[in-house]
Amino acid sequence: MIAHANKPKTFFVKILRQDAPGKPSYWEKFELDYEPELNVISVLQKIAAKATTAGGQKTTPVCWDCGCLEEVCGACTMVINNKVRQSCSALVDKLLEDGREIELKPMSKFPVVRDLYVDRSRMFNALKKVKAWIPVDGYYDLGPGPKQSRGDQEMAYPLSECMTCGCCVEACPQYSKIELTPNVGETPEEFEDRKVDTFNRNFVGAAAISQVALFNLNPTGKMNAGERLDALTEEGGIQVCGNAQNCVAVCPKKIPLTMSIGRIGRAVTFNTLRKWFDRPAKKH
């Protein structure tokens, strides 16, 4: 195939490694034989099997995370050649178009668990903070929900594709890394509490804002619209966004994040004013 014409016999993969949380990071380089149609995950599998650096030294297998292998779970997100993206959909043939080396780094906004595997719990915490779900659980059948218009369905569908991968917050200049370690004498529960509290006091990020747009659009979800908007005006809420619009540029699912930010920005203003003047929440 044309795409594989004049490809090198071998290529290099440079990986920013880290042995454990809080440990220093270091670079290691690996050399692999070129094969057509590799993706970065298969490259990582080969490196793990080989566990030998380009210099011929034995090393530990490189650790990474993945799940679906088809860009829907978000687990394999990392920084590839300085751009944040999913490694399962990063094709080596494409990456080698601009050189013989591929550079892999863990995302910089999350604590590293090991090597390329990061802890994205802050993102999931943000979903909890904004109540990114529809409360329909109960003891009896509530009957069919209200209908959603065709237009709203079309608006909601793209938003529902978010896989909480973290690309948007990795690229966001307003989102800074939080990495906590347990204090001496702190129980695991206390540590967890402190972590949740710290997460809640810092920027929720574009993905969670967009999920509020999604669930506030849903006819049943609307019933809790006010609570979600309230959560977004707490510390670390939507106001922290500085409109750099990097999030929308890097989102692999092309979710219209800045549109959600604009729409929710407007909704929180009205929601806050209504509360100030002690008016009931709008019944959509």
């Binding site: 690229a171 200049p173 409109n243 750099a244 619009q245 990097n246 890097v250």
Partner: peptide, 14 residues
Amino acid sequence: NIEAYPYNSNLRYT
């Protein structure tokens, strides 16, 4: 992070 994400909107932000 304009070097890593050299987009127009990021330039405006910076």
